[in-house]
Amino acid sequence: MPQPGYHAPETVQQAIALLSKEPGARVLAGGTDLIVQMRSGRIASPLIVDLKRISGMIGIRASGDGFAIGAATPCTALKKDAAFAAAWPGVVEAANLIGSVQVRNRATMAGNLCNASPAADSVPALIAAGATCLIAGPSGERELPVEQLATGPGRTGLATGEFVVELRLPARPKGGGDAYLRLIPRTEMDIAVVGAGAALVIDAAGTCTAARISIGAVAPTALLVADAGAALVGSKFDDAALGRMGEAVRAACSPIDDKRGTISYRTDMAAVIARRAVAIARQRAGEAN
């Protein structure tokens, strides 16, 4: 009977060695995707490598001006870190939309990222925030923008032996604010039909000086929509600028028709939800000035 092996290494190097030896090995952080997929038979992995005993994998620490979040840090812990919650409320809210409270007590943002679901809630928020991930592997460490990790539904660019060690976010810029919103048929316990993240910087006059807009569940991976951000920069969020932003979002959409939504509904909603996320981010940015 094929029973997966289970290892809980205590160092990053041990984890890399285990993962390198077995190309089918899977990394366990919170396990809220992995265990479910194993039980349903979607994944049959010969080896599970649990990260939680490696020092530094759980918790948030200051890193330069910004933050480093260990790969096994549960979503609910993000809320308890006052500095991080104040800096990136959109990221914290996104991570705490996933599943239920019980799920979020285990689930991690790094796991949400590496599961590579196009509908992952925390990923568009991280992309908007300009987060990167630190990857450790047999050939050393590398840092990658979050939007570049997933290569398709369920697929990442991680090579054999590599895993995400931590997520890095910058300090909140002066005049900055972020937000994430998703559309679901219910009010919770659901998967995004459409998700949108926004991170803005506005000056004292209320003009947008920087904007990153991201969308989820409307393409094979969560996307950074550079044109959407560019449409806002230099504007004071007038209807014309917001309209151009919405059009850029629509243009970036390439969703599928499935049980969770049609192509036309998802495309229309991406623009609506992005606009609403921008409104919240703008309000937060204004409060920061």
Partner: peptide, 29 residues
């Protein structure tokens, strides 16, 4: 009224055999 439905794919298989996509109301609804 709001969300519950059996959804079948083109091959005639039930496409939502779980509480994630067979949406009974949750308390906050």
């Amino acid at each position: 009224a709001l969300n519950e439905a059996f959804i079948h794919d083109k091959a005639g298989r039930l496409d939502n055999p779980g509480f994630l996509d067979y949406r009974v109301p949750v308390c906050s609804d």
